[in-house]
């Protein structure tokens, strides 16, 4: 793109390329907007993706941009249907890199079963971006049995994680410029919608809450839940058991190396579920048979004891408060 990459490509040509690659009937209408048929309850979400480096072990920003929005829809209990896709590209990004991202987008959207129905591309001057920024918005149809709401969370509910935590964040960290260290870790970015929908088929309203612990990790998401439920008549907290939290040895080692706590490290192909205690074991059993759910585990419980707080019992039996991050805002990368 731009100089040094055979840069005759204009925005217009670029868009044509995108359209060709991602071709589908709705996109092919070339209207100013997509016209959709929707009935019933609908979920709608948007997210922007910025990551350094753009290509990382196990994926790239394109795949992340699809999976991320697909997963946000899945966390609402929705079947992802339609997606918008916008790029902001920095001059200097090579055509080859861009096509690699595009191809990943194509496969990721096919894997998730979502249609890209509208999009946009802008190129900005060198220095005005970070290679490539992507925004995706998604629309999904809410599963008829889904009743996902933080209001449904109650004392005794089990906290379940669908897989090993912190893998994505540490894979990214291992290739961060200046920090490179040797690992075989690859990002676990994945579309979780098929897995989640299979669970909704079976457990429906017993699933009280679903969240994907991306930026800020499991600790941040659980703290948000505890904080949101620290008001009103039934104030709730969360207890965690450190020994039950699945972390790959290599991830634990890398975290220790860097003095990081895996609970705060970003995830991609992982979700948290808060479910009624009666179904918890069956839920985990089922999840372990589904894609991306083999390492699922009950990691904690919703309690009344310490409202607003997440408290973790360590392997040696001590209990510590897993704090919400305070102070500086989370950086935009990570």
């Amino acid at each position: 793109l731009g100089h040094g990459s055979g840069g005759l490509l204009t925005n217009k040509l670029l868009e044509v390329g995108v359209f060709d690659l991602l071709s589908n009937p709705l996109l092919d209408t070339h209207h100013d907007g997509a016209m959709l048929n929707l009935t019933g309850r609908v979920a709608f979400t948007t997210d922007s993706y910025v990551i350094s480096p753009v290509f990382f072990p196990g994926g790239n920003i394109g795949e992340l941009a699809i999976n991320g929005t697909v997963n946000d829809l899945a966390m609402c209990g929705a079947t992802p249907k339609y997606l918008s896709l916008s790029f902001i590209l920095e001059e200097g990004l090579t055509m080859a890199e861009f096509w690699d991202v595009l191809i990943s987008i194509k496969y990721a959207s096919e894997r998730a079963g979502i249609q890209i129905v509208t999009g946009d591309t802008k190129v900005v001057e060198r220095g005005k971006g970070d290679k490539i920024f992507i925004n995706t918005s998604g629309i999904g149809q809410i599963h008829p049995r889904a009743n996902i709401s933080i209001k449904n969370v109650r004392t005794g509910d089990k906290v379940i994680v669908s897989g090993h935590i912190a893998t994505h964040g540490m894979a990214i960290m291992s290739v961060r410029e200046g920090l490179e260290f040797e690992t075989t870790l690859i990002s676990d970015t994945a579309p979780l919608n098929h897995t989640v929908l299979a669970l909704l088929d079976e457990f429906g309203p017993a699933i009280h809450l679903l969240r994907d612990p991306t930026r800020g990790g499991v600790a941040t998401v659980l703290n948000e839940i505890a904080r949101d439920r620290n008001v009103g008549a039934t104030r709730l907290g969360i207890d965690l058991k450190q020994a039950a939290i699945p972390v790959l040895d290599e991830v634990a080692g890398a975290c220790e190396l860097l003095g990081l706590d895996p609970l705060y490290v970003a995830n991609e192909g992982v979700f948290l579920a808060i479910v009624a205690p009666e179904v918890a074991d069956a839920f985990v059993g089922k999840l372990q048979t589904l894609d991306y759910g083999h390492s699922a585990a009950i990691i904690g419980e919703v309690v009344a004891e310490h409202p607003g707080q997440v408290v973790m019992t360590s392997r040696i039996g001590g209990r510590r408060v897993v704090n919400m991050l305070v102070g500086e805002q989370l950086p935009r990368i990570c």
Binding site: L260, D261, V321, N323, L325, G327, E328, I333, C334
Partner: peptide
Amino acid sequence: VVGCLWPMSSPITH
């Protein structure tokens, strides 16, 4: 790079 490391860890030593 280093700045990015901190906020990912617990704000209080364990």
